[in-house]
Simulated assay, not measured.
Amino acid sequence: MSETKGLTRQQMADRVARAFQDGWIVNLGVGIPTMCSNTDIGDRDITYHSENGVIGYGPAAPAGQEDLNLVNAGGQNVTLRPGAAVVHHADSFGVIRGGHIDATVMGAYQVSMTGDFANWKLKGQKGGGIGGAMDLAACARRVFIILEHVTRTGASRLVEACDLPVTARGVVTLVATNYGLFEPTGTGFLLREIAPGFSVEEIRAVTGGTLTVADGLREIDTTG
């Protein structure tokens, strides 16, 4: 095992980005998911989609080269790749609702072992931030979630059942945390890859529901 314990936010995004397949259109939501566009994807042709209408963007803009009118869903200044387009907000949602998104990557407060996720409202919060999450959850072919494994108080964000208002049920296919890569199975979480420095026992202790371990469990590669 590596001496470094856990994954940084960029490493979490890198691991999810490595799951993207050539030719995919990928929506990146607010927060850690936006970092996926910074990942070196080699010769794969990935079109990054933002709800605000930027389609085909690339990494964050270098300091001093920002275009203040060109931002991703999180408001960070980004660059454009060849063939990119800036479209009306309604057209951006037309891409989503038309079923053209191969994968959406979102943050969440909780993910359940049945693939439910909650990301729009906390307990006691008035209103909430729905955004396009429900549209994406309903229309994207795959839903990937990136989140910190535990809250600031140490509670697991991977839970047996969500106790926050649910965004969508049974749609999450892959979860990346700073502890590892997980798959909701319906009856628990399958640990597919483990973050550097953690043991299975440590992860099981901070994971809600049942944790099973994939055959040939390997450590997440943080070198690429």
Rank of each mutant, 00 (worst) to 15 (best):
S2K: 07
S2G: 06
E3V: 05
T4P: 06
T4C: 10
G6V: 09
A13E: 03
R18V: 08
A19E: 13
F20A: 01
F20D: 02
F20V: 13
D22I: 12
W24K: 03
V26W: 07
L28T: 08
M35T: 02
M35E: 13
C36K: 01
N38P: 07
T39D: 11
D40M: 05
I41C: 11
Y48Q: 01
H49P: 07
E51G: 15
N52C: 12
G53E: 04
V54H: 01
G56K: 04
A61L: 11
A61C: 08
A61D: 11
A63N: 08
A63C: 04
E66N: 10
N69G: 14
N72G: 10
A73G: 10
G74A: 15
G75L: 06
Q76E: 10
N77L: 11
L80T: 03
R81Y: 15
R81W: 09
P82G: 13
A84S: 15
V86A: 10
A90C: 10
A90W: 12
D91S: 11
S92T: 06
S92H: 04
G94E: 08
V95P: 05
A103K: 00
M106C: 02
A108M: 13
Y109G: 01
S112A: 15
T114Q: 08
G115Y: 01
G115A: 05
F117H: 04
G124Y: 08
Q125V: 14
Q125K: 02
Q125C: 11
G129H: 11
G129C: 07
I130K: 03
G131P: 03
G132F: 07
G132V: 13
A133V: 09
A133P: 02
M134C: 06
D135N: 08
L136W: 06
A137H: 01
A140E: 01
V143H: 00
I145D: 00
H149N: 10
H149F: 11
V150T: 14
T151I: 09
T153C: 06
S156T: 12
L158I: 09
E160C: 15
A161L: 10
A161Q: 11
D163F: 12
L164S: 05
P165E: 04
A168M: 08
G170C: 06
Y179R: 06
L181A: 08
F182C: 04
T185K: 05
G186R: 11
T187D: 13
G188N: 08
F189W: 11
L191R: 00
R192G: 04
R192M: 12
F198C: 05
F198E: 05
V200E: 05
V206W: 05
G208Q: 07
T210Q: 06
T210W: 02
L211C: 11
G216N: 13
L217H: 05
R218K: 12
R218T: 15
D221E: 10
T223H: 14
G224S: 11
